[in-house]
Design a protein around this nucleic acid. Structure first.
Length: 571
RNA sequence: CGGGGCGUAGCGCAGUUUGGCUAGCGCGCCUGCCUUGGGAGCAGGAGGUCGGAGGUUCAAAUCCUCUCGCCCCGACCA
């Protein structure tokens, strides 16, 4: 492609709309333009990169045994009602009314659609297993689109769904997809971490997230640098806190604490650290209030709590219920004297002589101790891991960092096949629910995540596999006939080499402009026809990433390019 | 949805507090000259309903009311 023939609108200055590097660079390099909040247009360069990613995803999904389909973005509400997810998605769902008054949604994901197809078309174990996937635009009315294509209202996703006759089959399918994901991200040149994740609103039991470590990531990664344990925030566990606390039990004492509602206020008022306080939170589970005890510096993990209580969801009790149950305003609840079930976090169970609310207005209790002063009904891990916690596997100190989620694989089990009655007859003629898995990749996010990890002060640094063009030819002076002739000759040669896309910067611009632009758009290999060519008839080949430079006679250029491409495509 | 900020030329911004504007600056764009190894120089030029609507005033980018859009923090988020 010749630069003058395409549209690559580069910008010298940073756009005011962008906050993070990848977003700034995608705009400056002319990959994307914002059309409205959370929706971006891909310009020619961005489209080329997008297609590179899609090609890789498609190849590896096919290799992993998945079969491509293409589902509609328009979805009827009744299927979402049937699966019970209409409420789950709530306001995130983008809907509209058609001319007949029927409400239709723009698909946020496609479990229901694919399950509907499969339940209609597959009836026998003989037709299973099967994994179907598509690459489609998804729509979610994000409360706050952010960071360019990292969180947008409209985004491209590769989503795959597997259907098996049993869990052994699901495990094989899961492994095949997991492996395909590794190949995809490897080929994209991404550094990624696989971490255990909770399956969240998707349902199901086991799941893994593929994360790219980045300080702009919106997810927290809990990792052990010693043994490799990694999990997301919802899922991560900490090693139990040692119970070797031999402190003598002190006498319980009530103390006046006017207007101290929060842990911080109590902590300041009593001049004690938050980790010697215990907070008592009243939750509603199955319609009944339960008390949840946490150390003052810890936060409740509602995902763990929900699972522990065996509920679909739990919620904090409202103020009236709290006052009714505890006899005091919010902020003064404590376990002593409570008539409801008490669940204590493991970290609380090993504390001695701690401070709690007194279940009276403006009062707290000092030197509270379990067993002596109240009874714990259940001890469990119900909190988020925090700094200072230790690895549950090897007890090394845990590391907490941020990451961008680029892929997620779930074992769904029968959540959707039960809800939507996707059943088959097994070899004994018995009807069974299909065992499902689902597997997603954020295609746009791969691009943004890659740029976050691979850029310098001059611009993007593409890996060969995603580069919109592998080679850029820069004739330093387009008015120099000999140089231009050579540029065109080299262009013709390389353009015919399979798989080596080349861009010829034929603009009548000063060399500085062309060099800056070439660096900005991140083309891996640069061929410069300038001073050296005039002097010695040699061409200069320079690598974007390392800055390495080679001088090559024109006759050997295409061999050299081949060689460099081979070298650069190795990890 | 709560809190904060911003809408002035394609992009980045000044001017708004204290009304006087025929609205300015840098980049980009167009023409010519000159220049050609890291975002050159000179000269000339085009480009604006100051987000929109209404109001106050002799006079509004500037003050008031409403409205639309965008960004940031939070809440939210397979």
């Amino acid at each position: 492609m010749k630069w003058s023939q395409t549209l690559i609108p580069t910008l010298k200055e940073n756009p005011s709309e962008a906050e993070i590097e990848s977003h700034k660079l995608m705009i400056r390099a002319g990959l994307i333009r914002r059309i409205t909040a959370g929706a971006y247009a891909y310009l020619p360069l961005g489209t080329l990169v997008l297609n590179k990613v899609i090609d890789i995803v498609r190849e590896e999904m096919n290799r992993g045994g998945a079969i491509e389909v293409f589902l509609p973005a328009l979805q009827p509400l009744n299927l979402l009602e049937e699966s019970g997810r209409l409420n789950v998605f709530g306001d995130d769902l983008i809907t509209f009314e058609d001319r007949h008054g029927k409400t239709t949604a723009l698909g946020p994901t496609h479990e229901e659609i694919i399950t509907d197809i499969v339940r209609n078309e597959i009836n026998s174990y003989r037709q299973l297993p099967i994994t179907l996937y598509q690459i489609q635009t998804k729509f979610r009315d994000e409360t706050r689109p952010r960071f360019g294509v990292l969180r947008s209202k409209e985004f491209i996703m590769k989503d795959a769904y597997s259907f098996d006759v049993d869990y052994e089959g699901l495990n094989r399918r899961y492994k095949a997809m997991y492996d395909a994901y590794c190949r995809i991200f490897d080929r994209c040149g991404l550094d990624y971490i696989v971490c255990e994740a909770d399956s969240g609103a998707m349902g199901g039991d086991v799941s893994h997230e593929f994360m790219v470590p980045s300080h702009v990531g919106e997810d927290l990664l809990i990792r052990c640098m010693e043994c490799g344990y990694s999990a997301n925030r919802e899922r991560a566990e900490a090693a139990p806190i040692s119970s070797k606390n031999n402190a003598t039990l002190q006498e319980i004492k009530e103390i006046s604490t006017p207007h101290t509602h929060t842990i911080q206020e109590v902590s300041n008022f009593l001049k004690v650290k938050p980790d010697t306080l215990v907070k008592t939170m009243i939750y509603i589970s199955d319609g009944q209030p339960v008390a949840v005890l946490l150390r003052g510096d810890h936060e409740v993990n509602e995902t763990k709590l929900t699972k522990l209580l065996g509920q679909e969801a739990v919620a904090l009790a409202d103020h009236n219920t709290i006052e009714h149950v505890t006899g005091a305003r919010v902020g003064f609840a404590g376990p002593v004297g409570l008539q409801i079930k008490i669940i204590a976090d493991q970290a609380v169970s090993v504390l001695r002589n701690f401070v709690t609310g007194a279940n009276k207005p403006d009062a707290h209790l000092l030197n509270v101790n379990p067993e002596r002063d109240f009874k714990i009904d259940r001890i469990a891990d119900i909190r988020y891991v925090t700094k200072g916690d230790r690895c549950p596997k090897c007890n090394h100190e845990i590391d907490i960092s941020q990451g961008i989620e680029i892929g997620h694989v779930f074992k769904l089990g029968t959540k959707y096949s039960d809800a939507l009655k996707a059943k088959f007859l097994d070899s004994n003629g018995r009807e069974k629910s299909m065992i499902m898995g689902c597997y997603g990749i954020g295609v746009n996010r791969i691009i943004a995540a890659l740029i976050e990890r691979s850029h310098d002060e001059n611009g993007i640094i593409w890996p060969l596999s995603l580069a919109p063009y592998k080679v850029i030819i820069i004739p330093v002076n387009v008015n120099d006939a000999a140089g231009m002739k050579m540029a065109n000759q080299i262009y013709d040669e390389i353009v015919n080499v399979a798989g080596v896309e080349v861009l010829l910067d034929d603009r009548d611009q000063r060399p500085g402009v062309k060099f800056k632009d070439a660096d900005l758009i991140g083309i891996p290999i640069k061929i410069v026809i300038g001073k050296k060519f005039t002097e010695t008839k040699e061409l200069e080949i320079k690598l974007r990433k390392s800055g390495e430079t080679f001088l090559t006679p024109p006759g050997e250029v295409h061999m050299k390019i081949r060689e460099l491409c081979e070298r650069l495509s190795k990890p």
